[in-house]
Design a binder for these strands. Structure first.
Length: 706
DNA sequence: TTTAGGG
DNA sequence: CCCTAAA
């Protein structure tokens, strides 16, 4: 017996992967093709669908390669330099935030399955969970194991469930404490516990409180490790919840679809969907996590370029979007120009950028994020910086404060005690996951940064507008300085000049921001499906699915968009959670809205997460390898960035990956179990195809079924 | 548009 | 991921 045959055999005999089994109702329900088609596909055949003549092809190539115009490089580049620090210190961590809580909530989407379907699937499900636990635990982070335990508990024993949950809570707390950094979304009225568990109610406002304990840099590596774990743990949100909750109905169509993946023990289906969600919003920019993540200490150059990239992309795609005049103190108009005219400034900016870039990098290390207070509602980020990099900036004119003194030695040393992120209004559909909420917030923040942040200086509460004044002239630098000096982040309306400002400002100082920056309305952030409707409900509330099981009620009343005030009133605390979520890995800013069809750009790379892989495997096991469109619909319907071609390609690589030694594999490791399934499925479907080939379709089928 | 493969 | 020939 060849290995293939063995696998195949295994496949056929394994209850969990038995292709012989006729399709079940559940599947039928989700199938988009007609039942008749299904029939014909039963054996893995590719259903015959009327295809569009290829006549309609052809524009692709044309639009494809357009040179990137400098215009595309944005003011962002410049800002990038400036924001680099922020990103690295604060936002960066945001980018890395783990999907943690998000994952928890993810399951919500998978809910809404008909009871019968659930029942049916559930049996299988339980088996799988058990099975997998035993199989992969060793290879999985404890967190995952834990999660699973929770999941299992939930599906089975109530006691165990609560126990597990408690455990979870404590774990999270610990982790959080350890990290000293946390990034989360807190809804008003939320209790810390609820946040932890991912149960939300009411409006969620997000305030960013990126904080990192002192010494963050030093411990960066360790921190990341922790983060990673967190991420992981977040992932496996249980689809299980499907059974319950009456909330489901609230979610639209999207949910329905997600349901199509009832099986995943880990909520794979939900996952994939989830991620999509998040991803969808992203315009394709690189997620901070991807960019900024792990070794930000590495070399400056690399670092810089990463940041730059990040910003650049954001600029291009994200920035402008979602800024509502109504919420801004400055007019929309003001802001837009900066984006539109980017071209004009590009040259100059770029020059500047290069100039600043290095300096920035150097300064960066000096910034330390301090621990900040709580999420009481006022999210504030406190950053304290010790070293004064004033020297570094001496030559710069635009930076009054940094240069501090007029002469030699009198450097003004500043410490950023608080860095409040201007109000951000984020609107996100209820069906969105916590993870996506985080991403949205992140995007909002980065969009702002990218869009051009300007730093304002406040002295004794008054804005110091004259940039040409020296600190001394402005009265800054006295002893009382620290108490009376404040910084604020402001939208950089005018494209130009401000740019420099940021540069100079090394974010060493304290920045108190109070001005509302922008309102972010992830318009189409949702998928095109039914979500649109949601827009009306625009709840700022992220709902956490019933991860907990009980707090459904939390689901909340959707809020109209019109409740900004309320929002602002609420606490928006961002609990800083620095998590580097591998899966989330690519947290990308969303705003595709703005995304101009600047085609020609190669899509950003978005590595498949394990969850996605699992979803893919699951779908292929059921549908076969020749129906990528169906696979897409089934498992990645909400992942707009995953095309059937992508899935097909991914499968191709998976098959390849599975056939090479683990040492040769790269990227996020895919559980062997999944790879085995890939090979099994591949073998099986290949065989099916072969059998059909000859001419005995029916017979082949019959034989198999025997 | 979707598949299937090469790049 | 991209690009394309085919279907």
């Amino acid at each position: 017996m060849t290995s293939h045959e063995q696998r195949n055999h295994q496949l056929l005999t394994n209850p969990l992967v038995n292709f012989k089994q006729p399709k079940r109702r559940a599947e039928m329900v989700f199938q988009k093709r007609s039942s008749s088609e299904m029939e014909s596909c039963g054996g893995g055949q590719v259903a015959e669908m009327p295809r569009v003549p290829k006549s309609a092809r052809g524009k692709r190539s044309v639009r494809k390669k357009e040179a990137q115009s400098p215009a595309q490089m944005s003011a962002f580049d410049l800002l990038a330099t400036v924001a680099g620090k922020l990103l690295d210190e604060g936002v960066g961590s945001l980018g890395n935030m783990s999907a943690g809580a998000s994952a928890l909530a993810a399951c919500a989407k998978d809910v809404r399955v008909k009871q019968e379907q659930c029942d049916e699937e559930m049996k299988q499900f339980k088996h799988e969970v058990t099975d997998q636990d035993s199989c992969n635990e060793s290879a999985i982070l404890p967190h995952i194991a834990f999660q699973r335990a929770v999941n299992n508990a939930r599906t089975e024993d109530p006691k165990a469930k609560s126990e597990a949950q408690d455990k979870e809570s404590s774990m999270i707390s610990c982790t959080k404490a350890e990290l000293g950094c946390n990034f989360g979304v807190i809804a008003d009225r939320w209790s810390p516990e609820s946040v932890e568990s991912g149960a939300f109610t009411g409006d969620a406002v997000a305030s960013l409180m990126p904080t990192a304990p002192a010494g963050f840099h030093k411990n960066a590596p360790e921190m990341y490790n922790l983060l990673d774990s967190m991420d992981v743990d977040a992932k496996p949100p249980p689809l299980v919840s499907s059974d319950s909750t009456g909330e489901m109905p609230l979610y639209g169509d999207k949910i329905h679809r997600s349901t199509s993946l009832p099986r995943g023990p880990k909520g794979v289906g939900g996952f994939a969907v989830d991620r999509d969600d998040d991803d969808d919003k992203s315009s394709g920019c690189t997620h901070p996590s991807t960019t900024t993540n792990r070794d930000f200490r590495s070399n400056c150059t690399a670092e810089y370029s990463r940041v730059r990239k990040l910003l650049t992309s954001k600029y291009r795609k994200v920035a402008p979007a979602r800024i509502h005049k109504s919420d801004l103190s400055y007019s929309d108009v003001e802001r837009k120009p900066s984006f539109r005219n980017k071209k004009m400034h590009y040259t100059r900016q770029r020059t500047q950028r290069s100039t600043f870039k290095r300096r920035k990098l150097f300064d960066r290390h000096s910034v330390l994020a301090s621990e900040f207070g709580a999420a009481n509602g006022k999210g504030s980020t406190k950053v304290t910086g010790r070293d004064s990099h004033a020297e570094a900036n001496k030559g710069t004119n635009s930076m009054p404060f940094q240069k501090s003194c007029v002469s030699n030695d009198c450097h003004v040393k500043l410490r950023i005690k608080s860095f409040k992120v201007p109000e951000l209004l984020v609107e996100i559909p209820e069906s969105a996951t916590v993870g996506s909420l985080k991403k949205t917030v992140l995007e909002a923040v980065t969009a702002i940064l990218g869009g051009g942040l300007r730093v304002g200086v406040l002295h004794h509460g008054k804005k110091v507008r004259d940039d040409s004044k020296t600190l001394i002239q402005a009265g800054i630098g006295q002893d009382d300085m620290l108490d009376n000096l404040g910084f604020s982040l402001e939208p950089n309306c005018t494209q130009n000049p401000q740019v420099q400002v940021p540069e100079d400002i090394s974010f060493l100082e304290t920045i108190d921001t109070t001005e509302p920056l922008a309102r972010i309305a992830p318009a189409d952030s949702c998928s095109k499906h039914g979500e649109v409707d949601v827009s009306q409900e625009l709840a700022l509330t992220p709902l956490a699915m019933n991860y907990q099981g009980s707090d459904h009620d939390s689901v909340h009343s959707p809020r109209g968009v019109s409740s900004p005030d309320k929002v602002s009133t609420h606490s928006r605390a961002l609990v800083p959670v620095p998590a580097a979520d591998p899966n989330a890995g690519a947290v990308v800013p969303a705003n595709k809205s703005k995304r101009s069809p600047e085609q020609g750009q190669r899509r950003i790379r978005r590595p498949f997460s394990v969850a996605e892989v699992e979803a893919l495997v699951l779908a292929v096991e059921k549908l076969g390898t020749g129906r990528w469109r169906d696979v897409k619909l089934r498992a990645f319907d909400n992942a707009k960035h995953r095309t059937y071609v992508d899935l097909k390609d991914k499968w191709k690589t998976l098959v390849h990956t599975a056939s090479i030694s683990p040492q040769q594999r790269r990227g996020e490791p895919v559980p062997q179990e999944l790879l085995d399934r890939v090979l099994a499925a591949q073998a099986y479907w290949s065989q099916q195809q072969a059998k059909l080939q000859p001419k005995t379709p029916p017979l082949a089928e019959a034989r198999l079924l025997t």
